[in-house]
Computed example of a mutant assay.
Amino acid sequence: MAVEEAGDGWEVEALLDTCFAPGREALSSYRLRNGVPPVRDLCLTVRDGDGILAGAIRAWPVRIAGHAAALIGPVAVHPTRQGEGLGAMMVREVLILSRKEGWRRTLLVGDAPYYGRFGYRRLDGVVMPPPTNPERVLGTGEWDGVAGPVEKWVEQAAPGA
C-alpha cells in the first residue's frame, strides 16, 4: 500500500469507472470534492506484485458547522480482486493515518453493516447534500455536539478543528 502519486490519477479514475456506475460524479459527495484538493496523505493505492492497480481509497476535507472532517471515499477494489480484504485493509489504514495526521473525525456515505466493523456509526444531525440517504451517513471519531450540513472545504486549516 502506498500514498497515491500524481501519476496514479488516470489509473485510479479508470478503476473508479470500472467499479461504479456511470454518473458517479453526479453524487453529492462529488459536489463536495469538486475544486478541492484531496487529503493527499489519506489517498492510498494497492498494487499487486506486477504493479497492477488493485485498489484505491481517497479522502477529502469537509466542514460541518465549522468542524473539520475527512470525507472518506470513494473506496474501490478491482472486481477481480474483491473478496480478498483489500477494501478493509485500506479503510483501516486510512483510519490509522487520519488519527496520526490530526483528523478528529472521519465521515463517509456507505453501508452501516459493512463499515460498522471499523467503528463507523450513523450520524444523526449530520446532513449530506441531497439526494443522500441519511441512513448511510456514517462517521468515526469525535462527533458529540457536531451537527449540520456537510459543506465544501473552502480554506486550509488545521484538521483538529
Rank of each mutant, 00 (worst) to 15 (best):
residue 137 V to C: 07
residue 82 Q to P: 05
residue 62 V to C: 13
residue 158 A to C: 10
residue 63 R to N: 13
residue 3 V to T: 14
residue 124 D to Q: 11
residue 153 W to S: 10
residue 138 L to W: 00
residue 65 A to C: 13
residue 85 G to Y: 05
residue 42 L to C: 11
residue 95 L to R: 13
residue 128 M to N: 04
residue 126 V to L: 01
residue 27 L to I: 06
residue 146 V to F: 01
residue 110 G to C: 07
residue 153 W to Q: 12
residue 35 G to W: 06
residue 154 V to T: 15
residue 73 G to M: 04
residue 24 R to F: 02
residue 140 T to N: 10
residue 143 W to H: 04
residue 52 I to M: 05
residue 68 A to E: 13
residue 58 R to N: 08
residue 32 L to E: 09
residue 34 N to A: 15
residue 158 A to L: 12
residue 93 E to F: 04
residue 146 V to L: 04
residue 35 G to H: 07
residue 146 V to W: 01
residue 47 R to L: 02
residue 30 Y to G: 01
residue 150 V to Q: 10
residue 33 R to H: 01
residue 95 L to Q: 13
residue 158 A to P: 04
residue 66 G to R: 09
residue 138 L to T: 08
residue 129 P to E: 11
residue 43 C to A: 10
residue 12 V to Q: 00
residue 43 C to M: 09
residue 50 D to N: 09
residue 3 V to M: 09
residue 75 V to T: 07
residue 90 M to L: 15
residue 8 D to H: 05
residue 80 T to K: 08
residue 106 T to N: 13
residue 36 V to P: 07
residue 151 E to S: 12
residue 74 P to L: 01
residue 83 G to W: 01
residue 71 L to Q: 12
residue 62 V to P: 09
residue 50 D to G: 15
residue 50 D to V: 05
residue 41 D to L: 03
residue 161 A to F: 10
residue 117 R to K: 15
residue 15 L to C: 01
residue 14 A to P: 04
residue 113 P to M: 06
residue 142 E to D: 15
residue 26 A to C: 07
residue 100 K to A: 14
residue 50 D to E: 14
residue 132 T to M: 08
residue 108 L to M: 12
residue 107 L to N: 12
residue 107 L to D: 10
residue 95 L to P: 04
